[in-house]
Design a binder for these strands. Structure first.
Length: 853
RNA sequence: GCCGGGGUGGCGGAAUGGCAGACGCGACGGACUUAAAAUCCGUUGAUCGUAAGGUCGUGCGGGUUCAAGUCCCGCCCUCGGCACCA
C-alpha cells in the first residue's frame, strides 16, 4: 500500500490479478445458491457511453454484494452485434460489417475491463457469430414447425431512411425507433411470429412478476397488448345474404346505433352491386383513404379529419330490427376488431363527431343514474336530442328507449345482451387485442438469415436442422435499395431444395435483431454448446434471471419479446418456468447540461454534451466514477452529470485511504490477537464507534436488498466520518481501541467493495489479508443488534404535537419514568403553564407527546 | 381522453404515521500558504431577534389522528406510456 491513493496504479494491479485468478469465473455448484445478475446486451457501437457505465455499475455492485453473501453469481456480458450501423459503416467506408463490428467489440471490451466490471469473460457471446445465430435459426424452425412462424403479404411499417421494415413495436408513435424518421406503409411479403397467440398469457403471467417489475413497465406492456372485452354482433345486409360483423365493447348501446361504419379495406365493399350509382363514389373514396394511409406521417396523423361516404347498403339491427345505412369511413381501422363498427353517436365521441358532420341521427339510449329520484322523468327521452347533446355520453347508466331493455342498468345489460346474441346465433362474447403479430423479416444484410428455401415444386421448405447454420456471406453489394443485399449474392441465394433436390432459392431477408436478444441470457449459461442452444440442466441451475437491469426504452420491445420467447421455450420443454426475469430494474438516463442552456438532456454527440467514460477514468479512476454514478441519484432516477460530484467521490476515497494508512501498521501488529476484548475494556468513544459500525451494517444490508445504492453510499460516508471523529492516536491506542477501529475499517472495506472493488482489494490486502477478497474467508459483515443499540437516548418531548424539549433516557427507561421526567422538565412546565394535561403519549425509545387543553 | 410515475433547501437527494432536510455538491467564513490549488475546521430551509429563543415550512384545499412529507377525499402542475383501438 502506498501512502497516497493512486487509482491508476491499484486499478491496473487488481484487474490483472482478477484475470489471472479467474476471480469471477463460475460453474454449477451443489453448495452455493445461484444468483443471476444480468445487464442488457449492449450494441457494439464502438464506444461505451455513460448509460452503459451506469448500467454496469449497478449490476456490478449487486454482483459483488451477492458474492460476499455467499451466492454463486453469474455475471456475464456479450454483444448485440447484428444490426443496421454495421451495414451503414460498410456502405460509407467500403469495409465489411464483420470487421467493423469486431473492432468495435474489441475496443469496448477494453473499456469494460478498465472499468473493472466483474464479468465471467469466458462466457462472452456475440450475436453475429454463426455459433450464436445458428440457434436463432433453430428457434425459428421450431416455431415454424408449430405454426408460430408464418409468411404473408402485409402492409408493413417501412422506414424510408433505413430502407427496411419495422415491427409495430419499433414504429410506435409513427416514427422509427432508431432514426426517428416518419414511418411509411408498404405492402411486402414477410415472416411473422405469432406473438398474438400468447397475448392472454403475456397478460396473465404478469401476476408472477408483479412486485419484482416496475409498475410502469407492466402498465406499458398492458397498454401495448391492449386487451378489450366486448362482443361481436352480426348485422344482416338488407336484401342480400351478406352480413357485417362488428366488434363493440358497448353492446348495451345497440339501440342507439344509427349507422354501420366499415373500414376502407373492408371486404363488404367488393360486394357492392356494380351498377350501383354509389359504387363509383365509394371506390373513389376508398382509394383516397388508402393513398393517404400510405403517406401518412406522424405529423398529419393528428389532424386527420373524419370523412366517409354512404354505401347505399342497409344493415339490420338484430335486436330492434331497425335498418340503418352502411357507411365507409377513414376512422375505422381494418386491423382492429372486425374492421367494422356500429356507430352510436350519442355514446361514443368519434361516432358523435362523425354523425354531426354528416347529419346522422343521434339517439340517446342511456341516462345517467341520478340520486335525485325524479330526474329520469324530468329528462324525457326524445328521438332527436342532438341539439341538447354537446358531447357523447360515454358512461354506463340506465337504459332508455331500448325496447324491453329500457330501465335496466346498462353495465348489467351488456353481458346479458352478448349472451342472447350468441344464443340466437348473431354474435358472441369476444376479446380483442391491440397487439399484432411480430414481423421479423428485415431487408438487410447484417442479421441472421431466415432459414427457409423456396422451391418451385415444393414451395416453402424449411432448412433441415442438420444444415444449420445458414451462413451469412462476408460481402454483398450494399447499395441495393428495398431488397435485401443478400438477394444479390448468387452463391447465397442459389441452392437446392432439401426435399426434391431441384434448384431452389434461399430466403434473402434476415431476422430482426430483437430475435437475437430474446434468448441470449439463456446462452450465457452454456455459451459454447455446439449441439444445442444450451444444456437444460445448466439453464435450470442459473435461470430465471434473478435481477435484470437496463433502460426503460426496452420496456415494451425487448422485454415483451423475451417474455414471449420464454413462454415458447417453456411450451417446447426447454425451461420449466414462464417468466424469464424475476426482478427488473429500469435505470434512469444519464443527462448533462447542454452548453449555453439550462436544459439537461441525454448525453449525445449531436448536442455535444457527451462525456467520455475513458476520460473520466483517466482523470479520477474507475472506482470514483462508479462510486459517483451510484451515489448521485437513486438508480431509477435521471442522473445529472456533475464533475464536482466525482471530485467528491475521489475526496471520500482519499479520506478512507488516508485513514487506513494512518492505522494500518498498528492493525497489522494486532492481527495475531483477534479475540474480542471484554465489553468493559472499550472506552465510551470506542463503544460509540462500534455502535456506528453495526448500525451501518444493518442499514446498508437493507438498502442493498432494495437496490438503494445512493443511501448505502451515504451510510458508508457516515461510517467513515465516525472513524475520522475517533480521535485516538494509533500509537497510544489500547487493544480495545484497535479492535474497534479494525472492526469499523474491515466492515467499511467489505461494504465498499461493490462500489469501488479495486480500492477495496488494495485496502483489504493492506489490512493483512492475502489472496484477494473473494478467495479469503471474507463475508458480508453481520450486524450485532446488541452493539448497534444506543446506550443513551435523547427523547423529544412534544406538547400538542410541537417539539418543546428533550429529555435524556436509556433504551430501557420505563414508560412511567419517561412520563414523569417529561412532565417535570423545566421547559415543558413553562409551556404547560397552568393548563390541564389530558393525556401523555409515549412511544418507547422515540418520543413523548403531552396533550394539554 | 385512458393508464402509470412524481412534486421536499441554491442543487442531487434522506426520512417503518413519531425530532423534516441524513449523505454529498455548491456557497459563505476561517486555518495552513508569499500566493493559488489541495487539505483541514466552522456555518448554510425561510423569517423575526444583539441573544436566549420564537414563528413559518414538504405543489394547493379539506379531512382522519395525540402526531401527517407519509393515510383518506378533491384539485393543480409535471414527466412517461398508449391513443380515431370501437
Amino acid at each position: 500500500m502506498d501512502e497516497k491513493y493512486f487509482p491508476e496504479k491499484i486499478e491496473e494491479k487488481w484487474q490483472s490479478r482478477w484475470a489471472e485468478t479467474g476471480a469471477f469465473e463460475v460453474e454449477l455448484s451443489d453448495e452455493r445458491p445461484a444468483f443471476y445478475c444480468l445487464e442488457m446486451l449492449p450494441y457494439p457501437s464502438g464506444f461505451l457511453h455513460m448509460g452503459h457505465v451506469r448500467n454496469y455499475s449497478i449490476g456490478d455492485a449487486l454482483s459483488w454484494y451477492k458474492r460476499l453473501q455467499g451466492f454463486n453469481v453469474l455475471h456475464p456480458i456479450g454483444w448485440d452485434s447484428f444490426g443496421q450501423p454495421a451495414e451503414q459503416a460498410a456502405i460509407k467506408r467500403g469495409i465489411i460489417p464483420r470487421d467493423w463490428t469486431e473492432d468495435n467489440i474489441a475496443h469496448m471490451r477494453g473499456q469494460l475491463k478498465r472499468m473493472g466490471i466483474s464479468y465471467d469473460w469466458r462466457r462472452e457471446i456475440a450475436a453475429h457469430t454463426p455459433e450464436y445465430y445458428k440457434w436463432d435459426q433453430w428457434f425459428f424452425l421450431k416455431m415454424y414447425e408449430r405454426g408460430l412462424a408464418y409468411r404473408r403479404m402485409s402492409q408493413v411499417n417501412w422506414c424510408p431512411k433505413e430502407e427496411t421494415v419495422l415491427s409495430n413495436e419499433q414504429s410506435s408513435g409513427g416514427v422509427c425507433w432508431r432514426c426517428g424518421a416518419d414511418v411509411e406503409k408498404k405492402d411486402i411479403e414477410q415472416w411473422f411470429l405469432r406473438i398474438t397467440d400468447y397475448a392472454e398469457r403475456l397478460l396473465d403471467d404478469m401476476k408472477e412478476i408483479e412486485g419484482g417489475w416496475p409498475e410502469r413497465v407492466l402498465t406499458m406492456q398492458r397498454n401495448w397488448i391492449g386487451r378489450s372485452r366486448g362482443a361481436y354482433v352480426d348485422f344482416a345486409i338488407k336484401d342480400t345474404d351478406a352480413k357485417v360483423r362488428v366488434f363493440t365493447t358497448r353492446i348495451d348501446t345497440i339501440y342507439g346505433a344509427t349507422a354501420i361504419v366499415v373500414a376502407a379495406e373492408h371486404p363488404l365493399l367488393a360486394e357492392l352491386p356494380e351498377d350501383s350509382a354509389l359504387k363509383a363514389d365509394v371506390m373513389q373514396f376508398v382509394e383516397r383513404v388508402k393513398a393517404s394511409a400510405r403517406n401518412r406521417t406522424n405529423a398529419s396523423e393528428e389532424e386527420l379529419e373524419k370523412e366517409g361516404v354512404n354505401t347505399g347498403l342497409l344493415a339490420v339491427n338484430p335486436f330492434s330490427g331497425e335498418t340503418m345505412p352502411v357507411w365507409v369511413a377513414n376512422y375505422v381501422l381494418m386491423d382492429y376488431g372486425t374492421g367494422a363498427v356500429m356507430s352510436v353517436p350519442a355514446h361514443d365521441e368519434r361516432d358523435f363527431e362523425f354523425a354531426q358532420k354528416y347529419s346522422l341521427p343521434i339517439r340517446r339510449v342511456i341516462e345517467r343514474i341520478s340520486h335525485e329520484q325524479e330526474s329520469i322523468e324530468h329528462d324525457p327521452v326524445r328521438e332527436d336530442q342532438s341539439a341538447a347533446m354537446q358531447h357523447a355520453f360515454t358512461d354506463y347508466g340506465i337504459l332508455v328507449n331500448s325496447g324491453d331493455w329500457s330501465g335496466k342498468l346498462s353495465e348489467e345489460a351488456a353481458s346479458v345482451m352478448a349472451r342472447i346474441a350468441s344464443e340466437k346465433g348473431f354474435g358472441e362474447e369476444a376479446v380483442t387485442y391491440r397487439l399484432r403479430d411480430w414481423g421479423v423479416s428485415r431487408q438487410r444484410f447484417w442479421g441472421a438469415p431466415v432459414p427457409i428455401i423456396y422451391c418451385d415444386s415444393c414451395g416453402i421448405v424449411p432448412v433441415p436442422e442438420k444444415d444449420l447454420p445458414v451462413r451469412l456471406p462476408d460481402r454483398a453489394d450494399f447499395t441495393g435499395a428495398g431488397e435485401s443485399p443478400l438477394a444479390g449474392v448468387a452463391e447465397f441465394v442459389n441452392t437446392t431444395c432439401p426435399k426434391c433436390e431441384g434448384s431452389a432459392r434461399r430466403e434473402t431477408d434476415t431476422m430482426d435483431t430483437f430475435v437475437d436478444s430474446s434468448w441470449y441470457f439463456f446462452r450465457y449459461c452454456d455459451p459454447h454448446n455446439a449441439e444445442k442452444p444450451f444444456d437444460q440442466e445448466k439453464v435450470a441451475y442459473w435461470t430465471p434471471v434473478s435481477q435484470y437491469i437496463g433502460g426503460i426504452d426496452h420496456a415494451v420491445m425487448h422485454l415483451l419479446y423475451t417474455r414471449f420467447w420464454t413462454k415458447f421455450m417453456h411450451d417446447i420443454g426447454l425451461v420449466s418456468f414462464n417468466e424469464p426475469v424475476e426482478r427488473l430494474m429500469t435505470q434512469g438516463m444519464v443527462t448533462n447540461q447542454v452548453e449555453g442552456t439550462n436544459e439537461w438532456k441525454r448525453m449525445s454527440k449531436s448536442l455535444s454534451n457527451g462525456v467520455d467514460p475513458d476520460d473520466m477514468i483517466v482523470a479520477y479512476g474507475a472506482d470514483a466514477v462508479r462510486l459517483f454514478v451510484l451515489f448521485a441519484a437513486p438508480p431509477e432516477n435521471e442522473l445529472r452529470w456533475q464533475e464536482t460530484g466525482i471530485e467528491g467521490a475521489v475526496r471520500f476515497l482519499r479520506r478512507v485511504y488516508g485513514m487506513v494508512w494512518r492505522w494500518h501498521e498498528r492493525l497489522s501488529d494486532a492481527l495475531q490477537k483477534q479475540s474480542e476484548p471484554g465489553v468493559e475494556e472499550f472506552s465510551t468513544e470506542a463503544r460509540a464507534l462500534r455502535r456506528k459500525t453495526h448500525q451501518t451494517i444493518a442499514r446498508i444490508t437493507e438498502d442493498f436488498e432494495e437496490l438503494h445504492f445512493n443511501t448505502s453510499v451515504a451510510a458508508l460516508m457516515e461510517l467513515s466520518n465516525a472513524l475520522g471523529d475517533f480521535k485516538v492516536e494509533p500509537q497510544s491506542a489500547s487493544t480495545a481501541d484497535v479492535y474497534a477501529v479494525r472492526e469499523a475499517l474491515e466492515s467499511l472495506v467489505l461494504m465498499i467493495t461493490p462500489f469501488t472493488p479495486h480500492a477495496a482489494e488494495e485496502i483489504w490486502e493492506a489490512l493483512g489479508h492475502a489472496g484477494g477478497i473473494l478467495s479469503s474467508e471474507a463475508r458480508w459483515p453481520k450486524a450485532n443488534e446488541e452493539l448497534a443499540r444506543k446506550e443513551e437516548l435523547e427523547i423529544p418531548v412534544q406538547i400538542n404535537g410541537k417539539l418543546r424539549s428533550r429529555i435524556n433516557a436509556t433504551p430501557d427507561t420505563p414508560e412511567e419514568e419517561l412520563r414523569a421526567s417529561a412532565l417535570a422538565d423545566e421547559k415543558v412546565q413553562g409551556f404547560i403553564g397552568g393548563r390541564e394535561v389530558v393525556k401523555v403519549i409515549i412511544v418507547p425509545q422515540r418520543l413523548v407527546n403531552i396533550v394539554v387543553r
